[in-house]
Simulated assay, not measured.
Amino acid sequence: MLWKRVCVVLVGIGLLSGCGEDDGIDIEIVPPRDLAEVAVENDADIREYLQTHFYNYEEFENPPAGFDYKISVDTLAGENAGKTPLIDQVESIEITVTSGELGLEDQPDVDHTLYYLIAREGMDESPTVADSAFLTYRGTLLDDRDFDGSFTQPIWFDLARIQGPLQGARGFAEGMPFFKASGGITTNPDGTVTSIDGGVGMIIMPSGLGYFNAAPTNAIPNYSSLIFFVELFTIEETDHDGDGIPSIQEDLDGDGYLYNDNTNEEQERETIGGVLRVNFLDPDDDGDDVPTREEIIIQADGTLVFPDSNGNGIPDYLDDTFPEDS
């Protein structure tokens, strides 16, 4: 479901375009709500949830025999009233969301708070937002209703793809780097696999980092905050455009968001029928008709060298003045 948002939008467009003026069908177009207003409401709802719920942290601190290292959450009430609330155990980061990412118009950028809980950190490396991650997950609303998941068998997620505009899961992609992969994976007799010590936790996101007003299923009301329970097994570095540069190294401004790095965007916009391709999806980053792979050097040990043939301080693969104007 994490990748279905674009498909839903396209299907909706197709349905609308098939209705003629005389079909007698009245369609009410509901404009999207204000991004800043929804962000405040979502954060209030999330904080209330965190203040009134706890997770089985005692089992993680002192694992009983046969413990499966799965997070369970319950309300702070009755015999559990004295438990430590999630609000005291989560960490958070601020992520700026632009209106263009959600297909909105004429709305200012808005900072959103992403909350995450590390129940078990993991033992190996952490993924970047550009990597692929092999994991199990469970997606729920704040009222504990499930809407998606692969609870027992891990699956691969391309974090870079689901971070993208209109995908509906930027918060998921940007939360995963806080977890570490497992130091080992065990294959069980039934064919399932078990993480020995992979990162386990929660990612709690407002709708601006999720589906906002374009939820792909009725199971997710529009403007819903989302919770993902995750266990990370292993990761794989990616080079999406096959140009020899790992995708994370094509985040030129280093802000952790891959979709605002497009070296030749102006050129692409001026080209009739041109397609905008951000650097990590573009095999010719500067648009000079010389593939990026031919403008870099990959040494025997895998180290990358970026020549600057005309000495202007811009690597050849990002410099559309090379070689014609050098």
Rank of each mutant, 00 (worst) to 15 (best):
T98S: 15
A77G: 07
V200F: 03
P31N: 00
L159F: 07
N262D: 14
T113E: 11
S150D: 13
I93P: 05
Y317H: 15
G208T: 01
G311P: 04
G191Y: 04
N42V: 01
D320C: 07
S126D: 08
A39N: 09
N80H: 12
P291W: 01
D158H: 11
E265M: 12
G254A: 10
F60I: 03
P63G: 05
E125N: 15
V30H: 01
P108N: 09
N222M: 00
A39C: 07
L76I: 08
R277M: 14
P206D: 12
L16M: 13
I155L: 10
M202T: 10
G149H: 07
M176Y: 05
R33D: 15
H53S: 10
G122R: 00
T75Q: 08
Y115L: 09
F151H: 14
I71Q: 06
E270L: 14
E28K: 12
T140I: 09
S182G: 06
I235C: 00
F54K: 01
V200L: 00
L86N: 01
C7M: 10
G103Y: 03
K4R: 12
P127R: 03
D241S: 12
G242H: 06
P85V: 07
A39S: 15
E237S: 11
S309T: 15
F147W: 13
S92W: 06
L252F: 10
P63I: 03
Q267L: 13
P31K: 00
P31Q: 03
T271D: 08
Y259F: 15
V38Y: 02
L50V: 06
G103F: 02
R277P: 05
D284I: 04
F179T: 10
T136H: 02
